[in-house]
Protein backbone atom coordinates (compact mmCIF):
# COMPACT_ATOMS: atom_id res chain seq x y z
CA UNK A 1 0.00 0.00 0.00
CA UNK A 2 2.82 2.41 0.85
CA UNK A 3 4.49 1.70 -2.46
CA UNK A 4 1.22 2.48 -4.24
CA UNK A 5 0.88 5.74 -2.32
CA UNK A 6 4.40 6.78 -3.23
CA UNK A 7 3.72 5.87 -6.87
CA UNK A 8 0.52 7.93 -6.84
CA UNK A 9 2.29 10.98 -5.46
CA UNK A 10 4.99 10.75 -8.12
CA UNK A 11 2.46 10.30 -10.89
CA UNK A 12 0.27 13.14 -9.68
CA UNK A 13 3.24 15.50 -9.57
CA UNK A 14 4.30 14.50 -13.05
CA UNK A 15 0.89 14.32 -14.69
CA UNK A 16 -0.36 17.58 -13.22
CA UNK A 17 2.93 19.48 -13.66
CA UNK A 18 3.25 20.31 -9.98
CA UNK A 19 6.78 21.46 -10.74
CA UNK A 20 7.75 22.82 -7.35
CA UNK A 21 6.59 19.79 -5.34
CA UNK A 22 8.13 16.52 -4.24
CA UNK A 23 6.26 13.43 -3.00
CA UNK A 24 7.34 14.31 0.55
CA UNK A 25 5.27 17.52 0.31
CA UNK A 26 2.05 15.53 -0.02
CA UNK A 27 0.79 13.87 3.15
CA UNK A 28 -1.37 10.77 2.75
CA UNK A 29 -4.41 12.51 4.20
CA UNK A 30 -3.90 15.94 2.59
CA UNK A 31 -6.97 17.18 0.74
CA UNK A 32 -6.06 17.07 -2.94
CA UNK A 33 -8.76 19.53 -4.04
CA UNK A 34 -9.91 22.83 -2.59
CA UNK A 35 -7.84 24.17 0.26
CA UNK A 36 -5.33 21.33 0.23
CA UNK A 37 -3.26 20.87 -2.91
CA UNK A 38 -5.58 23.20 -4.79
CA UNK A 39 -6.40 20.85 -7.66
CA UNK A 40 -9.42 21.68 -9.83
CA UNK A 41 -11.96 19.97 -12.05
CA UNK A 42 -9.55 19.69 -15.00
CA UNK A 43 -7.07 17.93 -12.73
CA UNK A 44 -9.86 15.56 -11.72
CA UNK A 45 -10.32 14.65 -15.39
CA UNK A 46 -6.57 14.08 -15.69
CA UNK A 47 -6.69 11.76 -12.67
CA UNK A 48 -9.59 9.81 -14.19
CA UNK A 49 -7.38 9.11 -17.23
CA UNK A 50 -4.58 8.05 -14.90
CA UNK A 51 -6.87 5.54 -13.15
CA UNK A 52 -7.81 4.08 -16.53
CA UNK A 53 -4.33 3.99 -17.99
CA UNK A 54 -2.36 2.78 -14.99
CA UNK A 55 -4.86 0.66 -13.10
CA UNK A 56 -7.53 -0.30 -15.62
CA UNK A 57 -10.29 1.49 -13.69
CA UNK A 58 -12.90 3.19 -15.84
CA UNK A 59 -15.07 5.93 -14.35
CA UNK A 60 -17.95 7.08 -16.51
CA UNK A 61 -19.20 9.94 -14.35
CA UNK A 62 -16.72 12.62 -13.24
CA UNK A 63 -18.81 13.03 -10.06
CA UNK A 64 -17.58 9.62 -8.90
CA UNK A 65 -14.11 11.15 -8.68
CA UNK A 66 -15.06 13.48 -5.87
CA UNK A 67 -14.85 10.90 -3.09
CA UNK A 68 -12.15 8.77 -4.71
CA UNK A 69 -9.75 11.70 -5.16
CA UNK A 70 -10.25 13.18 -1.71
CA UNK A 71 -6.72 12.25 -0.59
CA UNK A 72 -3.88 9.88 -1.39
CA UNK A 73 -5.37 7.50 1.21
CA UNK A 74 -8.79 7.37 -0.45
CA UNK A 75 -7.24 6.99 -3.91
CA UNK A 76 -4.98 4.14 -2.81
CA UNK A 77 -7.85 2.35 -1.10
CA UNK A 78 -10.10 2.64 -4.15
CA UNK A 79 -7.38 1.51 -6.53
CA UNK A 80 -6.44 -1.49 -4.38
CA UNK A 81 -10.04 -2.64 -4.37
CA UNK A 82 -10.88 -2.03 -8.03
CA UNK A 83 -7.69 -2.32 -10.05
CA UNK A 84 -7.59 -4.67 -13.02
CA UNK A 85 -3.93 -4.07 -13.83
Amino acid sequence: MDALKQELKENIIEQLNLEDMTPADIADDDMLFGDGLGLDSIDALELIVMLDKNYGIKLTDPKEGRTIFESINTMAAYITEHRSK
Partner: peptide, 9 residues
Protein backbone atom coordinates in the same frame (compact mmCIF):
# COMPACT_ATOMS: atom_id res chain seq x y z
CA UNK B 1 -7.35 6.17 -25.84
CA UNK B 2 -6.02 7.63 -22.60
CA UNK B 3 -6.39 11.20 -23.78
CA UNK B 4 -6.18 13.98 -21.25
CA UNK B 5 -8.16 17.23 -21.49
CA UNK B 6 -5.43 19.83 -20.95
CA UNK B 7 -3.94 19.91 -24.47
CA UNK B 8 -7.45 19.99 -25.97
CA UNK B 9 -8.48 22.93 -23.82
Amino acid sequence: QYLTPTPFI
